[in-house]
Design a protein around this nucleic acid. Structure first.
Lengths: 100, 100
DNA sequence: GGGATATATGGCCTGATGTTTATATAACCT
DNA sequence: AGGTTATATAAACATCAGGCCATATATCCC
């Protein structure tokens, strides 16, 4: 599954952000956004299939939890690009390259 | 612009990865993937509008460069989630929570 | 059991996305 | 100028994504 595609929708990043604070039920999540409950359920399905969230039933409710593993992979992918902004030497090199 | 949406297509992440090595002309990029040149030009447009790449004309060619700024923003966004995997204490807490 | 609540799924519609072929634009070269 | 190369854009098409409404499923509570 493509983590970027799962995060491409602002409602889904909003859900992820909200779950970074604490787990939440579907209805709690629904109350945070201006779309219907079925729409949220669909977004949750996308996030589930991308492995970004997990569900735990609690009675008639379903509690969604953040699963950070795919975000850690994303962090690993970004590793490759950090050199572009972490080192002032690299900044200089890039600047020279841009003007070569 | 939504950086995640711009990166949601595997060809586009491939382009970004290839530009992390060095700037490339459009034809160079086309040769890396199994799609037509117009398709690549469209992907480049999406990446351009998302600010992930910049172009510099060089004669009749156009040289595409990686622009890391949006990736740095992504890195900043991820900051919020690093606590989920960088601390062993957090791992323990999460594990206990998962089994509560 | 029966009504209420919580969540997921199916059907339908609309708009966005990705691809190809054909063509436009611009620079290069002789 | 004319032919070639490099790249972008347009048109057409198919697929996908996201939204809503209606409905199914499961749990809760009386």
């Amino acid at each position: 599954m493509n983590t970027f595609a799962a995060l491409a929708d602002p409602i889904r990043t909003g859900i992820i952000d909200s779950l970074s604070q604490r787990p939440r039920t579907v209805n709690e999540i629904v109350s945070l956004f201006d779309v219907t409950q079925p729409a949220i359920s669909r977004h949750l399905r996308v996030l589930r299939e991308a492995g970004l969230v997990t569900v735990r039933p609690d009675g008639q409710m379903r509690v969604y939890h953040l699963n950070p593993a795919p975000l850690r992979e994303l962090d690993t992918w970004l590793q490759r690009y950090r050199k572009f902004w972490t080192s002032k030497l690299d900044d200089l090199e890039r600047h020279m390259e841009e003007n070569s």
